[in-house]
Design a protein around this nucleic acid. Structure first.
Ligand SMILES: [Mn+2]
Ligand SMILES: [Mn+2]
Ligand SMILES: [Zn+2]
Ligand SMILES: [Zn+2]
Lengths: 148, 148
DNA sequence: GATGAGATCAAGAATCATTCTAATTCAAAA
DNA sequence: TTTTGAATTAGAATGATTCTTGATCTCATC
């Protein structure tokens, strides 16, 4: 993973990203995906639109799009990174059984210092929240199995 | 990552774990470490106490100890897993600059449904919270650099 | 329109944490 | 003591990601 301390003077919006055909395709794939695909999944979907695109290029495009704030990278544990074109503030619900990942919109801002005693002198950048559980499909599936 | 749906009938406490010399050493290393070492770091520290222990065994021991609830695995993004012998309910503060990881004890229980709109029908198992920021040491270091 | 500098793309190699395999050793039960 | 399954170990395999390197493209300038 690339640790990249956000500098305070950096702008929220991209300055200049040459929107090449490959980057367009990758961006478009993500904007029309709501399941948070992995790099390989993005690669497969991109090939439908541009059969010559390579996995290396998909990784390059994802990096470029992330750096310019057009998409977000989502990590849950050490699983493959997933990617998300929803730029609104949100966290992720992750199904422990099938792996599906869904957006969860914020209701109110969480002040971490209200909930946890941070070590003296720590400066909080951002809490990373991932909500684990069972998606509706898996809840149903389990109920059916249990009642047999 | 090992996806392992927690079954409802499983017991919270370990039933039987043969406490072999290697498992003892790994456990003892973790109980005397407060910096959340990686598997390789656990391996190096274990070698001080048992020079013949192998990395494969350390991985096996960590798995066994985790499965029996004697230690916890901590993941931040896709970095190497870290391990923690603090079994009290707590979350982790992770320094973005130096990578140090510290425990943060809960003040009050967080009800995720108060803060985020979960998709209809989702069953929450557990929220995974990691707090990112700068540790006191890095805050100081940066201040000194800035004032030069 | 031609040229050159720098960005982008792409194939394949390298990396590295982790898992797997298979052979050996160990330990508790019979 | 023999048996049998578990534990240990070295080393190979895996797989996501990053790196390297050469080809290709873009676009400003001539
Ligand atoms: Mn999302
Ligand atoms: Mn801890
Ligand atoms: Zn599911
Ligand atoms: Zn630090």
């Amino acid at each position: 993973m690339k640790l990249q301390a956000p500098s305070h003077e950096e702008h929220a919006m991209p300055v200049d990203l040459r929107m090449t055909p490959q980057r367009s395709v990758v961006h478009e794939v993500l904007r029309s995906s709501f399941d948070h695909p992995t790099a390989t999944e993005v690669f497969l979907r991109s090939k439908d639109r541009m059969s010559t695109i390579s996995l290396a290029t998909v990784y390059n495009c994802l990096d470029a799009l992330i750096e310019h704030g057009l998409i977000r990278q989502v990590n849950v544990d050490r699983d493959s990174s997933r990617f998300c074109a929803n730029l609104n503030d949100h966290v992720h619900f992750h199904c422990e059984q099938c792996g599906v990942m869904m957006d969860a919109d914020p209701i109110e801002k969480l002040d971490v210092t209200k909930f946890w005693k941070l070590p003296q002198g720590c400066q909080v950048t951002e809490p990373a929240i991932a909500i684990r559980g069972l998606c509706p499909t898996c809840v149903d599936k389990n109920q059916k199995v249990a009642s047999r």
